[in-house]
């Protein structure tokens, strides 16, 4: 197992782990935005820059996808690494000056504000980290959203910017978005949930006992396709919200108990 020395702290990691994995092992914090362990690292936000020492050569690399193959020395706190991360953060703040999440992260990095004006348009603070599209494709398996346009016109969108039939309104994209760009909107009148800003909608299932909102219909279907359970039984169970189901089960158990007595 190769050894990684991070700011003087030594840690052994599996070959192929990343510098970020190693840093987390030691408890040393490296800011990240586009990293999420459940999807492959696109390494596009460039916020996690650290300085890698290889013999005489020193080089800045992104911690989230740099694979450890042999013993290496890494500096998170070197002047050069700090300057690079600060620079990237300042550019992000210029793009999305209203994002509370970004400001918080910046503050934690010791970056207060940005010297740059806002020159690029962002859709509701989106910093184009790509987590939403990766999750939708790699984890949910829907590929309902992707990137459209290039350069400063790049944006996350559904194909042709129309509500997507592929979207099952699972909300995973909204959960992973680091800046809250994606939001779930419940439409009580139609019993639908909308994934904003993509305009995709899906019908919600309601608990037959208490009327509480549950998952969306297409999501329930997709779960069914993955869980080994027959439809009748599934429908029986899916009709109820977890709480009502628990009650029902308890009642049933109680019933069984009282009968046997």
């Amino acid at each position: 197992m190769p050894t990684v020395t991070i700011d003087g702290v030594v840690v052994k990691v599996e070959e192929g782990s990343t510098i970020l994995d190693a840093a987390r092992e030691t408890g040393i914090w490296i800011p990240t935005l586009c990293y999420n362990p459940s999807v492959s690292a696109p390494a596009v936000c460039r916020l996690c820059m650290v300085e890698l020492e290889r013999g005489k050569r020193k080089q800045l690399v992104t911690a989230c996808n740099y694979p450890v193959r042999s013993d290496i020395k890494v500096s998170v706190s070197s002047k050069r690494a700090v300057r690079a991360r600060r620079g990237v953060m300042e550019l992000l703040l210029a793009r999305a000056p209203e994002s509370e999440e970004l400001k918080e992260l910046a503050a934690r990095m010791g970056v207060e504000g940005t010297p740059y004006p806002k020159v690029t348009e962002s859709q509701r603070n989106c910093i184009l980290c790509g987590l939403c599209t990766s999750v939708c494709e790699e984890v949910i398996g829907c590929s309902a959203i992707g990137f459209a346009g290039r350069g400063v016109d790049r944006a996350v969108a559904t194909p042709f910017r129309l509500a997507s039939d592929e979207c099952i309104a699972c909300g995973a994209c909204a959960v992973v978005c680091p800046v809250g760009t994606i939001q779930l909107r419940i439409h009580e009148d139609t019993g639908e949930v909308e994934i904003s800003p993509f305009k995709s909608r899906a019908k919600l299932l309601f608990c037959e006992e208490c009327g509480r909102r549950m998952v969306t219909e297409p999501l329930a279907k997709q779960i069914l396709s993955k869980v080994k359970i027959d439809w009748e039984e599934f429908r029986e169970r899916a009709r109820l919200c977890p709480e009502c189901r628990r009650k029902k089960t308890a009642e049933a158990l109680g019933l069984i108990a009282s009968k046997s007595h």
């Binding site: 793009r95 690029t120 184009l128 016109d153 790049r154």
Partner: peptide, 9 residues
Amino acid sequence: CGKCTPCRE
């Protein structure tokens, strides 16, 4: 391409 922050911004 607009993928990474430094180039795009």
